[in-house]
Write a protein that binds this DNA or RNA. Structure first.
Length: 457
DNA sequence: AACAAAGACAACCGCGAATGG
DNA sequence: TCCATTCGCGGTTGTCTTTGT
């Protein structure tokens, strides 16, 4: 089939971007989010092709990009990754927080390539298609092995918790319960303290045999409904630090067999929310009490947030629109000695201003302020997109769940809903199971609903 | 000071995979 | 299932800056 040119050259500007163009692009994306690159220039008033806009945004304007000198650690990491992955810059970039593939590529070509050649490292030109070109002490690493599934912290607002719970509840089938039960029993055997969510991953150096390993069918590619949600997730959260969390939540919508994903999704929500809760509350004692109320708005108030002025995001994992299942095959084991919140529930600990998160290698560390930004952007964007229905993806989602979106009645037997935890639950996260029936968030007695069973993470 | 060469990096191009009607 | 469209990726080019002569 013929490929249409990415843009009509007539009247479209090329070359260096001006500050004015940058501002237009930033303003548009701030308001409407990423995506729809083909129509974006016209809507944003830019005489550029969509592709140019996307590149400009992705490689230069995105707020979560770290620019400037590469550190020694980053250099070393690039060298190591290049030895394994070759010129797969996007894959390499996933391991370097806040660095773009283009930047890494340029840095390699202008600095490291020559240096490595001078050192006589023969893997400079490693070709993944030609294993013989690989260095003797390394072996080609497949994408699914190296690509980090990057759970990122999310602490939704109370409203967002509801929204996400609605989705999680709608998506979670009764079979999810078995996974939850299984994972809980495994965890009990392995660690009576705190269940690490990585227990449900396909690869974690210290995990017991994962469900996925025992049930390969669980990792089937996402179906149409999953694609729908993938699209929505990417539309809604491309620029967000919490993209992977939401992505993992939403990716649990695969139609039939990927229980693995679904259970991971539910636990990811609660796990990361719990981590976020702990990390923020322990790093800033002044807001701890507010966190226990599940009311993020008060938390935001305490930070004196100005949403429009808090566009300084943090790294996102990037969206690979078609590889959700691939990239969610496992959590990356942190290479650096990140603080493991899942093993430390002592809220009396004193933390530095900068926070680190277990299992979030791509994120590295971030400050309280960055967490705040991520929360702000995530919750406001997610809620507005969900509630206004102004975007295609949202419309599609609402259509998809037209029959009772506001309820969380699942199938014909159970309801599973993931809740973020607070101190009342001992700092843990839980999934609750309700007996058969229809439940409504709008019900004033909602808080009195009694689950028949609860599972803690 | 003038010019050329090299370096650095933003931006572009084309391909292929993913997506959706 | 087909096929037009969209998007992401990796290679390459263009342009500006720095360095050397």
């Amino acid at each position: 089939m013929g490929r249409t040119p990415c843009c009509n050259a007539d009247g479209l500007k090329k070359g260096a971007w001006t500050a004015d163009e940058d501002q237009k692009l930033i303003a548009y994306i701030k308001e409407h989010g990423e995506g729809g690159w083909r129509t974006l220039p016209q809507k944003a008033g830019l005489q550029r092709c969509g592709k140019s806009c996307r590149l400009r945004w992705a490689n230069y304007l995105r707020p979560d990009i770290k620019r400037g000198e590469f550190s020694k650690e980053e250099e070393q990491k690039i060298i190591e990754l290049h030895a394994s992955l070759g010129n797969r810059w996007s894959a390499i970039a996933r391991h370097l927080p806040k660095r773009t593939d283009n930047e890494i590529k340029n840095y390699w070509n202008t600095h490291l390539k020559k240096r490595q050649a001078e050192k006589g490292n023969d893997h400079v030109c490693y070709n993944p298609d030609d294993p013989s070109s690989a260095p003797s002490n390394t072996s080609p690493v497949c994408e699914t092995e190296l690509a980090p599934a990057q759970p990122t912290p999310l602490r939704p607002s109370s409203a967002s918790v509801h929204l996400l719970n609605k989705i999680a509840a709608k998506l979670a089938p009764s079979t999810c319960l078995e996974t939850l039960k299984t994972s809980q029993s495994i965890a009990t055997e392995a660690d009576t303290d705190v269940v690490d969510v990585s227990i449900m991953n396909t690869r974690h150096s210290e995990s017991p045999p994962s469900l996925a390993m025992r049930c390969p069918d669980m990792l089937r590619p996402a179906s149409t409904s999953a694609r729908l949600l993938n699209k929505m997730a990417s539309r809604l959260t491309n620029r967000l630090h919490c993209i992977d969390t939401i992505k993992s939540i939403l990716s649990g919508s695969s139609d039939n067999h990927d229980i693995m994903h679904r259970s991971t999704s539910v636990s990811s929500l609660s796990e990361t929310a719990s981590d976020m809760s702990r990390s923020i509350s322990t790093s800033n004692g002044g807001i701890h009490d507010q966190m226990t109320t599940h009311d993020l708005s008060s938390l935001m108030d305490s930070f004196d947030l100005d949403l429009l002025n808090n566009w300084n995001g943090v790294s996102d994992g990037g969206v690979s629109s078609g590889s959700m299942c691939d990239t969610y095959s496992g959590w990356e084991s942190p290479a650096s000695p990140l603080y493991d919140f899942s093993k430390n529930n002592n809220n009396n600990n004193n933390y530095n201003d900068r926070l680190t998160f277990s299992g979030c290698e791509s994120m590295g560390t971030c400050s309280v302020g960055e967490v705040k930004d991520a929360l702000t952007t995530t919750t406001t964007t997610f809620e507005s997109e969900m509630t206004t229905g102004s975007r295609d993806a949202t419309n599609q989602l609402e259509k998809y769940f037209a029959d009772g979106f506001s309820d969380f009645f699942i199938g014909d037997s159970h309801v599973v809903s993931a809740f973020s935890a607070d101190s009342k639950d001992g700092g843990e996260s839980k999934a609750e199971v309700f007996e058969e029936g229809t439940y409504s968030w709008e019900d004033p007695l909602f808080e009195n609903y009694q689950p028949s069973d609860s599972y803690f993470f």
